[in-house]
């Protein structure tokens, strides 16, 4: 089960990942389409104390958003390590935004729907990983963190 990790020392804050994310989730997957449809990136880079921190849904093992969803629109797929958002069932009540411990679910007020990382589910690698010019975004198996510690 692969997850997204970030090397803070490598992130320049260029926001290529944000653009790639918006493009990947636009109808025709073009920049033009993303701009025209006002697609909100599911990832955001935050700047704090001289460093850049990319952030998107962590697909937590404990997932308060899934528990709290009053519309039954969120399901956790244990095998894929993925919180799946069923947009058909979502009513835009913002409960998931209210309970996300990372502030990683973004309210798209215009479309009245929360947007969150889906790990680009149909692709072999998330678009943000491909787009990062400095390899600050890592797409790794979970035990990768153990290796880092060593």
């Amino acid at each position: 089960m692969k997850r997204l990790y970030y090397r803070i020392d490598k992130c320049l804050g260029c926001r290529s990942c944000e653009i790639a994310c918006a493009v990947a989730h636009a109808g025709e997957e073009t920049l033009f389409c993303a701009i025209k449809q006002k697609v909100l990136p599911r990832k955001k880079v935050y700047f704090f104390e001289g460093k850049n921190f990319p952030l998107s849904c962590l697909h937590c093992k404990e997932h308060p958003c899934v528990d709290a969803c009053m519309a039954g629109a969120l399901v956790y797929d244990k095998e894929k390590g993925l919180v799946i958002h069923n947009e058909e069932r979502c009513v835009g009540c913002w409960i998931c935004v209210m309970v996300c411990p990372y502030g990683a679910i973004r309210p798209d007020i215009n479309r009245k729907i929360p947007v969150r990382c889906d790990k680009c589910k149909n692709k072999d690698e998330p678009a943000c990983v491909k787009a990062c010019p400095t390899t600050a975004i890592l797409w790794q198996e979970e035990d990768f963190l153990l290796e880092v510690k060593k």
């Binding site: 997850r3 990790y5 970030y6 921190f53 962590l58 990372y102 990683a104 963190l145």
Partner: peptide, 21 residues
């Protein structure tokens, strides 16, 4: 305006999911 997870990250007692390396 820039309030976000990194602002509170180091104050939290428990790091539930580690993503920054």
């Amino acid at each position: 305006e820039n309030f976000s997870y990194p602002v509170i990250k180091d104050l939290l007692k428990k790091e539930k999911e580690k993503i920054y390396v």
